[in-house]
Write a protein that binds this DNA or RNA. Structure first.
Lengths: 221, 221
DNA sequence: CGCAAGGCTGAACGCATGTTTAGTATGCTA
DNA sequence: TAGCATACTAAACATGCGTTCAGCCTTGCG
C-alpha cells in the first residue's frame, strides 16, 4: 500500500509520477492544515519517506513553490474553462464542489492569508477579470461608472476575498476541506447585506462622497 | 540594565511590575512579529530570562491569554473614551498614532487573522457599535434601512476589517509597527472606491437584490 | 551479464522550540 | 535574627522540525 501508483515506465515522464502524487498530497495537506504541516506529515500522507520529499523538491520551500505555480496554473485553466458566465464567487464554489479542485481553492485561500507570491498573482488575475466584468456592466448600463475603474476593480476583489477570509477565520467550517459548505455558510450570513450594499449602497445621498472628494483635493494638515 | 523597573514595594501589587512590563513587551513583539515569536525572544526584549516568562504566566499560552484579555480591555477603554464622534476606522488610526496603543491595534489585527477567542470578542464589540451607529443613521435619514439590520452590521464590520487585513497582507507596510502609515496606505488605495460603494452602490437598479430575495424564498434544488 | 542511475529508505544530525528543575538572591514578616 | 515566600536565573530536558547521509533496491542500457 506504499504507493498507489505503479512505478514509472520510462522514468522520464515528468508527471503522473510519484512526484506528482506527492505534490497533490502536499497541496491537499497545506489546504487542510495550513502551511505549518511538517514534511513528515506530508510524507506519511503520501505513503513515502520524509527524505523522498526533499529528494524530489530540494527543500520544503521548493515544495511550496512547486505547489504555488501548479495551483495558479490550474486555477487559470479552470477559469478559462468556465468562461464569463459566472461571477468569481460562483466559480470558486463550483470549483470547490469538485473533489479534485477543492484543495486548490483551499490552498489559494491559505496563500492569500499568508500574503506570498501566489497571493499577488492570484489577486491580480481576479482584479483583471473584475475590471473587464465591470466595464461590460458599465457599457450595458447595469453598473454605475466609477471615477477610478481600476481602483474599484481592485477594491471589490480585495473586499470580496478579505470578507470571506475573515468570516471563515471567525466561523471555521466543521470540515475545512469542504469549501463549498463553507461558502454556503458565508453566503447565508452575508448574502443579503452584501447584495443590499451592491444594489443600493449604504447612504441615502452622496454627501459623504462629496466630502471625501473635497478631502482628497485639499487634505488637512 | 536588567530591569528598568525597581523591585516591587510590597510584592503584591499586581501591575506596574516587571510582570506588566513583560506583558507589554510580549504584546509589542506579538504585534510586530506575529504569534510565532519565541519565548526566548520575548524574554530577551524584556531583558529577563526565558524561564521568568513561564514563571509568571505558566506557559506561552498563558501569556497569550493574558495579552488577549488585556488588549481587549484596553481597546474597550479607548473606545469608551473617544465616544461616538468617530468612525471605527478613525478610532483605530487615532489609537495607532499613539505609541502606547499602537501595539494594541497590531495585536488585535494579528489576533483577527488567527481567529482566536479575542477575535470574536473584538468583532462582536465592533458589530454592536456598528449596529447602534447604523440605527442612528437610519433614524436621522442619512442611512438606508436594511431588511436585516443585525446582519448588515456584522457584514459591514467583517467587510471593513477583512478588506483591511487582506490589503495589508498583500501590501505589507515598511514598518509593521507604524499602523497609522499602513492605514494611510490602505485609504489611499481604497478610499475612493469604498466611498463610492457606500454612497451609490454598484448596480444601477435593484434587479439583483430582487433576484436574490426570490432566490432566498424559493431556492433551487 | 555487468553496471551505472535514480527512486527510495532508515537513521541520524543540528537546531529551535516550550518547558522543567534546581538553585540563588532579596525583601517581608514574625 | 530566623525563616519564608517570592522574583529571578542558568542549565538542562524533551520534542519536533528541516535537512543530510550512506546505502539499498530496481530498472534500463551497453
Amino acid at each position: 500500500m506504499r504507493s498507489a501508483l505503479r512505478s514509472t515506465k520510462s522514468g522520464r515522464s515528468p508527471d503522473i509520477t510519484a512526484r506528482a502524487h506527492l505534490r497533490d498530497t502536499a497541496i491537499a495537506l497545506f489546504s487542510h492544515e495550513g502551511f505549518r504541516v511538517s514534511v513528515r506529515a506530508i510524507a506519511e500522507a503520501a505513503g513515502v519517506s520524509p527524505a523522498l520529499v526533499l529528494h524530489h523538491f530540494g527543500s520544503k520551500d521548493g515544495l511550496r513553490q512547486e505547489c504555488d505555480t501548479f495551483v495558479l496554473a490550474r486555477i487559470r485553466e479552470y477559469k478559462e474553462d468556465a468562461v464569463r458566465r459566472s461571477t468569481p464567487g460562483e466559480l470558486l464554489s463550483r470549483m470547490a464542489a469538485m473533489d479534485e479542485s477543492a484543495p486548490l481553492v483551499g490552498y489559494a485561500l491559505r496563500s492569500l492569508q499568508a500574503g506570498g507570491e501566489l497571493a499577488h498573482s492570484f489577486i491580480e488575475h481576479f482584479v483583471a477579470d473584475a475590471e473587464e466584468w465591470l466595464a461590460q456592466g458599465v457599457a450595458a448600463g447595469t453598473i454605475r461608472p466609477s471615477l477610478d475603474e481600476k481602483a474599484r476593480a481592485r477594491y471589490l476583489t480585495i473586499q470580496g476575498f478579505g470578507s470571506m477570509l475573515l468570516d471563515l477565520a471567525l466561523n471555521p467550517p466543521a470540515d475545512p476541506g469542504d469549501f463549498a459548505a463553507a461558502m454556503r455558510g458565508y453566503l447565508a450570513r452575508n448574502g443579503l447585506p452584501s447584495t443590499e450594499l451592491l444594489t443600493q449602497g449604504l447612504m441615502t445621498d452622496r454627501t459623504m462622497l462629496d466630502a471625501y472628494l473635497l478631502y482628497v483635493v485639499d487634505p488637512p494638515a
